[in-house]
């Protein structure tokens, strides 16, 4: 078969790749050692970044894409897919990660936004993108730009699942609401939530988003992860929750098992026993406006 007969970077390949991650846990890692721990614990993929979100909160300053040296070190260390975070709107960071061979790019509000008006035009890339969302309108705007996976924004680095729950309930609740609407009402609703009408109608027909829908932002325990799955997530991201806990290997394995058996409380009870301390948490109501990450990008 000749190379020119092959098609690369299509929408189907991007969404297909995202779909292979379903039922899985994607873990934030900052170096090769953490990546190996995540892979051995059963992560479906790792997310490379310079600092985990709770450290970004503590240290402040501008948070950027990870050093390419680190990304390559992580790619070489594991055989599972490696993802990477770029700043909202920073299409050159995305070009760099694509060149390095990163399998999926997260255009993430956890990093400091590079463009307060526009997100990356994701259709220009061969690699698939993930984007955060707080409600259906935001999710569909990102899908319209080419995102192949949506994750709840939650409130990263807090170890507090409340915002992830709010965002998952928003997205799934709004899709359930579509059931009672006729076509005209859906078009009107699309205008209200500032989303393309055809995508709203597609959600209504499928009863779900057109791409996979993960949960992220504050998941810190096996029960948190299983709750997001029971609420309807296709999989979960765990950021600071693993490597800021007192026993990362055990926490990583326990969260993988909880996601796999999210409907079996006896399994979740077993894997949660004697896990040590989860990451220290933050009450999101005590955050100053400029400390809230989820309002970046809209």
């Amino acid at each position: 078969m000749k190379l020119e007969e092959l098609r690369f970077g299509t929408e189907l390949l991007k969404r297909g790749f995202a779909s292979m991650q379903k039922g899985g846990v994607i873990m934030d890692v900052v170096n090769a050692d953490q990546a190996k721990i995540a892979e051995d614990a059963g992560a479906v993929a790792v997310m490379s970044l310079e600092r985990v979100p709770s450290d970004i909160r503590k240290m402040g300053g501008v948070a950027r894409m990870a050093d390419p040296e680190k990304v390559i070190e992580i790619i070489d260390a594991v055989s599972i897919p490696v993802m990477g975070k770029v700043r909202i709107g920073h299409f050159v960071e995305a070009q760099v990660l694509e060149t390095l061979g990163v399998d999926m790019i997260d255009e993430s509000e956890v990093l400091t936004p590079a463009d307060e008006q526009y997100h990356i035009d994701k259709k220009l890339f061969k690699v698939p993108f993930i984007c955060g969302a707080r409600d259906l309108g935001e999710a569909l705007r990102r899908i319209n730009e080419g995102a192949a996976m949506i994750r709840t924004k939650g409130e990263a680095g807090t170890g507090n699942v409340v915002e992830a729950v709010r965002h998952m309930r928003n997205i799934l609740g709004e899709i359930r609401m579509l059931k009672g609407m006729d076509r005209q009402e859906m078009i009107d609703f699309a205008r209200d939530i500032e989303a393309p009408a055809e995508l709203v109608i597609e959600c209504s027909e499928r009863g779900r988003l057109p791409v996979v829908n993960f949960s992220a932002g504050g998941i810190a325990t096996p029960s948190d992860a299983a709750m997001m799955m029971q609420l309807g997530a296709d999989g979960v991201f765990v950021g600071s929750g693993i490597f800021k806990s007192s026993s990362p290997e055990r926490m990583a394995k326990a969260i993988v098992e909880a996601v796999n058996h999210f409907n079996e409380p006896e399994v979740i009870a077993r894997v949660s026993r004697g896990l040590g301390d989860a990451m220290p948490g933050l009450d999101v109501h005590t955050l100053r406006d400029d400390e809230v990450l989820q309002t970046r990008g809209r």
Partner: peptide, 9 residues
């Protein structure tokens, strides 16, 4: 890697 994923007949 993923960027080399493809469709073919």
């Amino acid at each position: 890697r993923q960027r080399e994923s493809f469709e073919a007949d």
